[in-house]
């Protein structure tokens, strides 16, 4: 079946890369502003981009993201600040990182069956964040960590909601296509 996954723009440097990644994988996609009304979301899945807004002070800049998590029951891949927002929204915490990470880092996968299916336990990721998830929300599983960041990836226990602190959309993250393909499968799986 033909699915569409839209990219919600939170002002990230790599928002357009997320769109490109989906397009490269043959998925129909559009970049939409984060002020798009939830009722107007017609995609089968959403990617929430990262961006310059700081999680502790700039939440209004993330627009209607809360509505996309509550009112639209479709799979979501939330990246960087989107991931931090998702954690707070479901009762976790996020704030300034003890050690911010920029550029190259190594991820260690602890839950290999879902978003990281078929990937090695450790590989190179590309990161760029000042804030991080400091407490996992209840009902979420931690999927991966790095030396300086405890929650590199998480997933809701029941719904297909994923958050990643690192950037699977950039060329320098190893297995970038595979991670997106796994998310696309989650979208396809929930739209039988």
């Amino acid at each position: 079946m033909d699915i569409r996954i839209d990219v919600v723009d939170n002002g990230g440097q790599w928002t357009h890369r997320e769109w490109r990644m989906l397009r490269d994988l043959g998925i129909d996609s559009e970049i939409i502003p984060n002020t798009t009304a939830a009722a107007e979301i017609t995609a089968d899945g959403l990617v929430l981009s990262g961006g310059a807004p700081r999680i502790s002070s700039d939440i209004p800049k993330l627009g209607l993201t809360d509505k996309y998590l509550d009112e639209v029951q479709i799979p979501v891949l939330a990246i960087c600040v989107g991931h931090q927002y998702m954690a707070i929204h479901f009762g976790g915490e996020a704030g300034p990182a003890r050690v911010p990470e920029y550029g190259k880092a190594e991820i260690i996968i602890t839950e290999p069956d879902d978003l990281f299916k078929g990937l090695p336990e450790r590989f190179t990721i590309w990161v760029s964040h000042n804030d991080e998830v400091t407490r996992l929300p209840e009902g979420f599983i931690n999927l991966a960590y790095s030396r300086d960041c405890a929650v590199q990836a998480m997933k809701h226990e029941e719904r297909p909601l994923y958050g990643v602190q690192f950037h699977p959309e950039v060329e320098h993250t190893e297995y970038h296509y595979e991670i997106f393909t796994n998310f696309i499968e989650a979208v396809t799986g929930s739209n039988p």
Partner: peptide, 10 residues
């Protein structure tokens, strides 16, 4: 145009 900023983008 991405790096030149605009709206939310620094």
């Amino acid at each position: 145009w991405i790096e030149s900023g605009g709206q939310l983008r620094d």
